[in-house]
């Protein structure tokens, strides 16, 4: 056993030992070589593209754009008559793309955001590294694409520390809406944990919008904004009163109905602002 171990060490040393290790040692370079130890000045770089920032502003309102929506305030639902006070409202927005004037798309890398109404800055998604140019539209995904639900441990907005994850039935909770209502059974509480990414249970929804006549001009110093409106009252469009459906805590028909109602009619493009 000891002999084998020594042989392994010996083999390891032999591998480390070869000395001809010249090449490009800059990991940022196109021809970076992880074997090279000494830089021989052959590094080649991608042409630097000028980029700027765009902010995606999410304005939350209740039914009518003139009524701001926030946590811990009581609202009446116009169709069901329920009085609703939300204590939690969080959801994922992902896979943001911007459409260039020439019809091609810029795709944001690692594009995952958790919007959390508990946090003031939660409703402003800053996209950086957007190539300078004119943009005419946006595409984004409400929820988390199926790939990220089946590929193991993630980081950033997709970290499980946010609690937006089902441990016993792997997958992201894509919308979490909790609160109280005198109309709700179960001690006057409502809890909606909406998710599901496969088959009939899939709630993930891609949304696109054209900006209209004006286009978004991104320069290295511009502060352009894309405004979206978000109306939580649309969760109840089909399921109706909290007394019908007061709790959803797994993928399935209720999750699909509530989430797609919210995504389709509660989230919409409003305007851009250069």
């Amino acid at each position: 056993m000891k002999k084998i171990a020594l042989l392994v060490v010996a083999a390891g040393i032999l591998v480390f030992n070869s000395c001809k290790k010249e090449g490009c040692t800059d990991p940022e370079a196109l021809n970076y070589s992880d074997k090279a130890k000494t830089d021989n000045g052959t590094c080649q770089y991608e042409e630097v593209q000028e980029t700027g920032k765009v902010t995606l502003m999410l304005a939350h309102y209740w039914v009518n754009e003139t009524m701001d929506f926030s946590l811990n305030m009581q609202y009446v639902h116009p169709e069901t008559g329920d009085s609703l006070t939300f204590t939690t409202f969080k959801y994922f927005v992902s896979n943001i793309k911007l459409k260039k004037e020439d019809g091609t798309w810029w795709t944001q890398p690692e594009s995952y955001y958790l919007v959390n109404l508990d946090e003031a800055e939660g409703a402003q998604l800053v996209l950086s590294g957007v190539p300078v140019g004119n943009y005419t539209g946006i595409s984004y995904v409400m929820g988390v694409d199926s790939t990220r639900n089946v590929s193991g441990a993630q980081t950033g907005a997709l970290s499980t520390t946010s609690g937006m994850f089902w441990s016993w039935n792997t997958g992201y909770i894509m919308v979490k809406a909790e609160g109280t209502s005198p109309q709700a059974g179960m001690g006057g509480a409502f809890t909606y944990h909406l998710g599901g990414f496969s088959g009939n249970n899939n709630i993930v929804t891609t949304k696109t919008a054209a900006f209209g006549t004006e286009s978004l001009n991104v320069t290295t110093t511009s502060t352009g904004m894309i405004h979206l409106g978000v109306d939580p009252s649309r969760l109840f469009t089909t399921t109706g009163s909290v007394s019908n459906v007061g709790m959803v805590h797994m993928p399935g028909q209720n999750a699909v109905t509530m989430a797609t109602d919210f995504y389709n009619s509660g989230v919409s493009f409003k305007y851009i602002h250069n």
Binding site: N149, G152, G163
Partner: peptide
Amino acid sequence: GGVNHLEMFSIAPITNPVEMNETML
């Protein structure tokens, strides 16, 4: 078969109230 990936397994015992009863955070 509720867990689809070995990397995502550990969150189940860690957060299960009758196992380790913790939160990931």
